[in-house]
Each structure stands twice: as C-alpha cells, then as structure tokens.
Simulated assay, not measured.
Amino acid sequence: MSDPEEAVDALDARLLLLLSDEPRLGVLECSRRLGVARGTVQARMDRLERRGVLRGFPPEVDLAAIGYRLTAFAVLEIAQGKRIEVAERLSAIDEVCEVHATTGEGDLLVRMVARSNADLQRVIDEVVDVRWVQRTSTSIALSTPIPPRVRPLLERVAGRPETAPS
C-alpha cells in the first residue's frame, strides 16, 4: 500500500488489535476503550471493510477439535496456464483449506486437513485426480510453533507493543 490514503494508521491498527482480541465488542465499547468518538470508530470500520482490510468476524475454529487432526501441505506442479482452473477444482475439495500461487519448484501450495492417515490419502488422491495437476509433493505438519498471525504487524503500525488478554 504505497498510497498514503490507503495506509493503515495507528488508530486503525489499535482498532484491529482490539477486534482481534475481542471480536464481539460493539462500536460503542470500541470507542470507549480507544478514547475516540463512536462515529470515528464506525467510519474507520466501514473504511477498513470497504478496502478489504477487515473481512468480517468469523469464529476461529480449531480444526483438530472438530476431528481434523492432520494438516498437510502439498506443492503442486500444474500444466502451463491452468492455475485458475486447478484452483477452482481444488476449491471443490472440502478438506482443502488454502491454495497459494507460488514461485520456485511448484506452482501452487495447498494446505489441507484430514481426520487420519487413511483420510489424508483419500484427500491427496482427490487432489492428484484434479485435471492438469502433473506432480505433487506432500508434507505432513507435525506441529505449528507459530500459528497464523498478524498481531506483530498491527502492533508495529500501532506504534506500541500490545499484549493479548489472558
């Protein structure tokens, strides 16, 4: 975001940190905690949503807790020029959680989940059966020492370290 009007400022970052910690907070409570007017918070939230920075408030679901205990990553090599088509077909596989176009050895990086080793084999077979997938290399995640996060970046923009509630 090189356009200054598009940059997230310290107040935006503080608002995003607050909503990350407590997604059920209302606009009035956010304004009280941030020390700004309710209208300011509402305008900031509207702008962040319009720009796609704030994309809703879904609950964070622990996939292991609902039975998907295995996470695997597959690097896919696909036929030239078929990235969009392959991604569309991968989106039809429920256990495919993310797909990223990449540089390097492969063309797509796929994060998938499964209930067991046998179930993972079924999911991999579905991925391999996608038309235009030419080769795959799959690795099982043993642990997640650093889960997906944005807090350090928001804290940097906010201009001060924040601590998550205990």
Rank of each mutant, 00 (worst) to 15 (best):
L28N: 13
R32Y: 14
V36I: 08
V36N: 11
A37Q: 11
R44T: 08
M45G: 01
D46I: 02
D46M: 03
R51F: 12
G52S: 13
G52A: 10
R55F: 01
G56D: 01
P58Y: 14
P59C: 05
V61I: 14
L63D: 10
A64E: 14
I66D: 09
Y68V: 01
L70R: 15
T71N: 07
F73S: 09
V75R: 01
L76V: 05
I78S: 00
A79V: 06
A79Y: 07
Q80F: 04
Q80V: 12
G81P: 03
K82H: 08
R83G: 02
I84E: 13
E85G: 00
R89P: 00
L90A: 06
A92K: 13
V96N: 07
C97V: 11
V99Q: 04
A101S: 14
G104F: 00
D107W: 04
L108E: 03
V110N: 01
M112E: 01
A114Y: 01
A114T: 07
S116L: 05
D119R: 09
R122M: 13
I124Q: 08
D125A: 14
V128Q: 12
D129F: 02
V130S: 04
R131Q: 14
W132S: 09
R135N: 10
T136R: 09
S139L: 15
L142C: 06
S143P: 11
S143I: 05
P145E: 12
I146N: 06
I146P: 00
P147W: 00
P148I: 04
R149W: 11
V150S: 09
R151L: 10
P152V: 02
L153A: 12
L153M: 13
V157N: 03
V157H: 00
